[in-house]
Design a protein around this nucleic acid. Structure first.
Lengths: 229, 229
DNA sequence: GCAAAAGTGTTGTGTCTACACCCATGT
DNA sequence: ACATGGGTGTAGACACAACACTTTTGC
């Protein structure tokens, strides 16, 4: 018998899955029962298997936590490699950003729950930093892409959409101006339907939808763009 | 003797190193002598070693090709994981974007050379796609950050800077407007020095420098920014 | 009529492009 | 003087924020 020095790192995939719930941006976490970091909350994920891509892997691990069909957007965030990030093994982790539209409420396992991002508990490993990196990516892309489609339901009033943007961005958003920006960019379109007012009355809201369910950059060349002729 | 199933992928680091040379955006490639892809050009890089981070790894591998002190910026791009990306082994690769300022001309090994990005030869593995992803990242960040510092020399006239931006962006850039954008954003500052005119005459150009040699976002919240009060 | 909620009109501001014009130097 | 290259002045286009005002509903 020879001892074989393992000369490749273990590789895990993780996902920062966000959803706007109860007016707050929340992230999906599970509660670790075993060491290391027993008792701490952690991002969902697991090891990469032979024959699968990173994206396939994180979809497979997420399927154990939420109905993957609910995940409306998934993109790679970053790969973490600090040799000390895992206390027991040499492990790299590739993190993904996942988004779930407002309104759906997937069934979750016992050990899994949503947590408000601005009141995070102590997270295992480097998952705290990864979560914040995910929020930064989300906030930036809400500004210059149509990424809102991934947080919003199929159809919505503009004040509902404003609340979603406000929760994700962490500051007030004006429904008036949000409408004009997204309509001008041809990101939103009216459905022609209306929402019935509640018992307090008020004008019925027009319902909108996102034109495309795929990520599109809507404002990339705001400056330093090519000359017209 | 037992066969030990290796259940972790090999992990390599790669770098897309750009420099503006001869008015073109060029990328550093080396010529593979051995299979797989013998005879093809490839991005510099190599395996990740135990105890190092991905960034340390790519700096180490780059050191074999260029003087690493010349690399003025390095950031992680993406991790590629297609099981078929390497014909012989299960290998992931994390790619970095590296930038070298105009003007320096590092000594290179025999097998290594610069190639114009818009006339790339066939590249090994998925290196062609990675190179284009690197160019996209560079072009986007030139618009909304001070990343130009990493492509420009210490001090430069505005027409020199315009040529650098034009090569990287792939379209004409107006020196007049480039100046105003970068000065307003407080990215550039005058050095107070001047460039002596050439034999053809002409007004001597004022020399500028970038204020900061670190990446800073200068335009992130162009829209959907927080209300003033 | 009045409160509530949604939507429109309008003004002002800041940032950018385009282009005409002026400046400083060598021959 | 004039060619050459650099720099400034200025006008217009555009996208956005802010806010007043109007519309549509329930009670």
């Amino acid at each position: 018998m020879t001892t074989i020095a393992k000369n490749s790192p273990a590789h895990a995939t993780l996902a920062v899955v966000f959803q706007v719930r109860a007016g707050k941006l929340q992230v999906l976490l599970w509660h670790r029962a075993k060491a290391p970091f027993a008792g701490a909350w952690a991002l969902p994920g697991g090891y990469l298997d032979r024959g699968e891509t990173l994206e396939t892997s994180i979809r497979r691990h997420l399927a154990a936590k939420v109905d993957v069909r609910e995940v409306s957007h998934l993109e790679q965030l970053e790969t973490r490699s600090d040799p000390k990030r895992h206390p027991k093994e040499w492990q790299l982790a590739t993190a993904y950003l996942g988004l779930v539209p407002r309104g759906v409420d997937p069934a979750l396992p016992e050990d899994t729950d949503w947590h408000s991002v601005d009141r995070l508990p102590k997270l295992a490993f480097d998952h705290g930093a990864i979560t914040l990196a995910g929020r930064e990516r989300l906030q930036a892309k809400l500004s210059y892409t149509n990424l809102g489609f991934a947080l919003a339901p199929q159809s919505f009033s503009l004040s509902e959409l404003r609340d979603i943007y406000a929760a994700a961005l962490g500051h007030d958003v004006s429904a008036t101006n949000l409408q004009r920006v997204l309509i001008r960019r041809e990101v939103l379109e009216p459905t022609g339907k209306r929402r019935e007012p509640g018992r307090a009355g008020g004008r019925p809201a027009a319902l909108f939808r996102f034109r495309s369910p795929k990520l599109e950059v809507t404002d990339q060349f705001a400056v330093l763009r090519p000359p017209e002729r």
